[in-house]
Design a protein around this nucleic acid. Sequence first.
DNA 1: CAGTGGTCTAGACCACTCA
DNA 2: GAGTGGTCTAGACCACTGG
Lengths: 235, 235
Amino acid sequence: MDTPVIHRRIEGDIARRILSGEWKPGFRLPTEGELMAQYGCARMTASKAMSRLAARGLVTRRRRAGSVVAHPPLHSASLVAIPDIQTEVEGRGLTYGHRLLSRQVRAATAEEAWLAGQGLLIAVETLHLADDLPFGHERRLIALAAAPEAEAADFAVQAAGSWLLARTPWTEAEHRISAVGADHDIARALRLPLGAPCLKLERRTWRDGQGVTWAWQTFPGDAYDLVAKFSPTKA
Amino acid sequence: MDTPVIHRRIEGDIARRILSGEWKPGFRLPTEGELMAQYGCARMTASKAMSRLAARGLVTRRRRAGSVVAHPPLHSASLVAIPDIQTEVEGRGLTYGHRLLSRQVRAATAEEAWLAGQGLLIAVETLHLADDLPFGHERRLIALAAAPEAEAADFAVQAAGSWLLARTPWTEAEHRISAVGADHDIARALRLPLGAPCLKLERRTWRDGQGVTWAWQTFPGDAYDLVAKFSPTKA
DNA sequence: CAGTGGTCTAGACCACTCA
DNA sequence: GAGTGGTCTAGACCACTGG
């Protein structure tokens, strides 16, 4: 058999009972030895199943104390996925496009030191389009030290964001989501009244501690939602 | 030895080379057999390390083809954690508080059928406070079928959100984040001018396909950011 | 001290797929 | 067909911790 996948069956059986509420938080689960007997498998197999449940956060395991159904975190931190803009637009059945509004190479300011130290960076301003209508506005800084080829790249052809994503793997990112009123530039680019509620998405990216890029994306509040369906079943 | 954790050493060694860029996407990784030789371990140990790397998304494994460094997804979907309000407030060193503005038991409307079918639900309106100042506004519906004890609970003591979280594990959740202008109720509750940009967080929660709760939380745009630091190293 | 999980070994069979 | 990963077994030693 290639796919006896006994460990998945064990994992699923237990997960079902936990998720259904049959086994409540704190409930003492079978030990690995008991699982061996129940399923007629080796200990490593039972162990694998339980390890996966622990990785999923469904159970807590402690030596000697055994495995118990995990208590849901009192202050849950759930997750929202942030798709990139092209994916978002095309997911709505619209045609994605973009326009390079400005591009500039300059030295980093003090505020941008985390990105490029005293070095050079590229600043681009991009308008994202959905079916040729303004969809979002983006300001982006790219550290030249982290992506030297960026100086020669033509961001009118491929948007700076996806250009970077395809080339420069990141190891760390920080997102910040907030609501702002449209300022002058953004109101004009997105054709909104001044002060109209907009969703602002700020993203800073590192690669092994070195700054790569810093982007601010702004979307009309009534045109863009960040949506995420999340289930704890992920391992 | 209890913690030889050879598999973690293997995992770390390989992860480092991938994250540093030394091994680029598509690079053919050592086979399990080669790892056995390099580290002087059994095949299961090498296998475990590689499995974990695959689970982290750093490598792609295929029978016969071997394991290669995974290509970063062209359209990355990054994640933002949504802390609950109390955690958020206390994380800023402020004192958390809340006030129950209204509570009502009524039948579900057609729009709320996903939550409670034709059944009853509890509708509560809560004001969240930071250092006694309005911090966020919350409307929440709770399906009585999913949490019958909610009818007797005193949400003036424990806020409905954390009450639920502690009692009713959820298996699926959907978040929606958007920017809106403050409407009358919210402007009054949060003491904002009408139309002020606000961050709206909508959350729908299920437990095994049955609706549990539906909440809308609204925060002043200039007072609340959703921040998340994310690194792909998570397994 | 004894039970539990964490890890490791040395072998095995199989499914898949590339050459 | 042969090499690779996916899974399983039966045994082992150890660290930790609750009684």
